[in-house]
């Protein structure tokens, strides 16, 4: 009796092993992309290119703090430096992977702290080809992951949303570097199985021991525009206190942590 129970547990776990692995791979990729260290900061330069080749630039400082364990709640503070019409605007996000995020925006000309109603995380972040979710991270719990293939360098995952009506893709495929867990490429597919959006990691630097994507690109394959992100002066465990992520510092930016 005992033995048969053990056998069935063993069989059961063997049976679910590959699904489990795919989830672990996706979890590790999310940790590698968004949860390195207890906190982090960087100066981000964004270049948006439309299909006619016209360029727009954005520059912002991003501060991130993990409020709990890896893959749990996080806080983000984004402080815009460029272009001039959004300069000094600050953006605060309390990210909750399995619920709607809380977002606030501070408009300095009006000294106004606005609460942002946007619940859709798959809308463009400041007019770029990146979505909010690409910047702050999509929870690996929101998709079902399947290991399609294992190559010399990569795990190739197919991720299908659990809530299909909440997103614009029908699935995405990602190439996750085995050693670092970094997603080197992701392709988003529509209902007709055709790829319409691609993410690529163009450069990785090892910073404070953490391999970090410092140059990346999102391409719109349909309208043929793209946005590149360059992360400069990346720093982990900078000692960002919890109270920085509050209305106080929205109104009064924490210069100490923004100028580095």
């Amino acid at each position: 009796m005992k033995i048969s129970l053990l056998v069935s547990i063993a069989l059961g776990s063997a049976f679910s092993a590959s699904a489990q692995d795919a989830q672990t791979i996706a979890d590790n990729a999310a940790k590698a992309a968004y949860y390195q260290g207890n906190d982090g900061r960087a100066i981000v330069s964004m270049k948006i290119t439309d299909k006619q080749g016209r360029e727009r630039q954005r520059e912002f400082v991003i501060l991130r703090r993990d409020a709990g364990q890896d893959l749990e709640d996080q806080q983000f503070y984004v402080y815009f430096r460029q272009p001039a019409d959004v300069a000094d605007t600050a953006f605060l996000v309390r990210k909750r992977p399995l619920a709607n995020d809380d977002r606030w925006l501070y408009l300095p000309a009006l000294d106004l702290v606005r609460r942002i109603a946007a619940s859709d995380e798959r809308t463009s972040f400041v007019g770029s080809h990146f979505f909010y979710e690409d910047v702050s991270g999509r929870s690996p719990q929101e998709d079902r992951h399947e290991l399609l293939e294992e190559t010399e360098h990569y795990y190739v995952l197919k991720s299908v949303p659990k809530q299909a009506d909440a997103v614009e893709f029908s699935y995405f495929k990602s190439w996750i570097h085995k050693d670092s867990s970094i997603a080197v490429k992701s392709e988003y597919y529509d209902d007709n199985d055709s790829a319409y959006r691609t993410y690529e990691a163009l450069k990785v630097e090892t910073i404070n021991g953490h391999p970090t994507v410092t140059h990346s690109k999102m391409t719109d394959l349909i309208r043929s525009g793209s946005t590149t992100l360059s992360y400069a002066r990346v720093e982990y465990d900078a000692g960002l206190a919890e109270n920085i992520f509050s209305e106080r510092y929205l109104r009064n930016p924490p210069t100490e942590f923004l100028e580095f």
């Binding site: 190559t151 970094i182 080197v184 490429k185 392709e187 990691a201 090892t206």
Partner: peptide, 19 residues
């Protein structure tokens, strides 16, 4: 479809000390 390794990952294995 497999992407080539971006700069920084290819050397990861050979890197002795974290840069």
């Amino acid at each position: 479809e497999e992407p080539s390794l971006p700069p920084g990952l290819a050397e990861l294995d050979t890197q002795v000390e974290p840069q």
